[in-house]
Amino acid sequence: MRLALAAVGLCAVATVMAYSESQAESPVRVPAPALVIANKAPTETAYFAGGCFWGVEAVFDRVKGVRMAQSGYAGGALKNPDYEAVSTGATGHAETVKVVFDPRQVSYATLMQIYFSVATDPTQLNRQGPDTGTQYRGAMFPTSPAQAQQARAYIAQLTKARTYPRRIVTRIEPFNGFTVAEAYHQDYLVRHPAQPYIVINDQPKVAALKRYFPQYWKA
Rank of each mutant, 00 (worst) to 15 (best):
T132R: 11
I198F: 01
N201C: 13
Y136V: 04
A69I: 04
N80Y: 11
S26I: 15
V59N: 02
D202K: 10
T163Q: 09
P196H: 09
A24F: 07
R211W: 05
L35N: 01
Y164H: 09
A77N: 14
P42V: 12
T132W: 08
P27G: 09
K79L: 12
T163C: 11
N201E: 12
P33V: 06
Q195F: 04
K79G: 10
T91A: 10
P33M: 03
E95V: 05
G55Y: 02
P81Y: 05
P196I: 05
D131K: 06
A41W: 08
A161Y: 08
A77H: 13
M17P: 03
A24V: 06
A109S: 12
A77P: 01
V206S: 03
T43P: 06
P42L: 10
A46V: 07
K160R: 15
L5P: 11
Q135T: 04
F178E: 06
P214F: 06
A139E: 02
A7K: 13
D121G: 02
Y136H: 08
E25N: 13
G65A: 08
Q149L: 14
F178C: 09
I114L: 07
T110H: 07
G138L: 01
I155H: 05
C52M: 11
Y136C: 04
R29T: 05
L111N: 04
Q203L: 14
G177P: 06
A156Y: 08
A156K: 14
L5R: 14
V100I: 15
A119R: 00
R2D: 15
R67Q: 15
T88A: 14
T159G: 13
A139P: 01
Q186D: 09
V56I: 05
L3P: 04
I200G: 00
V36F: 02
Q124G: 05
L209G: 00
L209K: 00
G89R: 05
A7P: 01
A49T: 06
A18H: 12
Y188G: 00
I168N: 05
G76P: 01
P122C: 08
D202G: 04
A34I: 06
S117P: 02
R167I: 09
P214S: 06
V106Q: 02
V206G: 00
V169I: 12
T15R: 14
A153W: 04
R162I: 04
A90T: 13
L3F: 15
L111Y: 03
K64E: 04
E25G: 05
Y197L: 10
A14G: 13
R29P: 01
G50L: 03
H185K: 10
R2T: 15
Q186F: 11
S26A: 13
A94K: 04
M1A: 15
F48C: 03
C11I: 14
T96N: 12
Y115K: 03
Q105F: 06
G89P: 05
T132L: 10
F213N: 01
E21C: 12
K218N: 11
F116K: 01
R67D: 10
I198A: 05
K98R: 15
G65Y: 02
F48M: 11
Y19C: 09
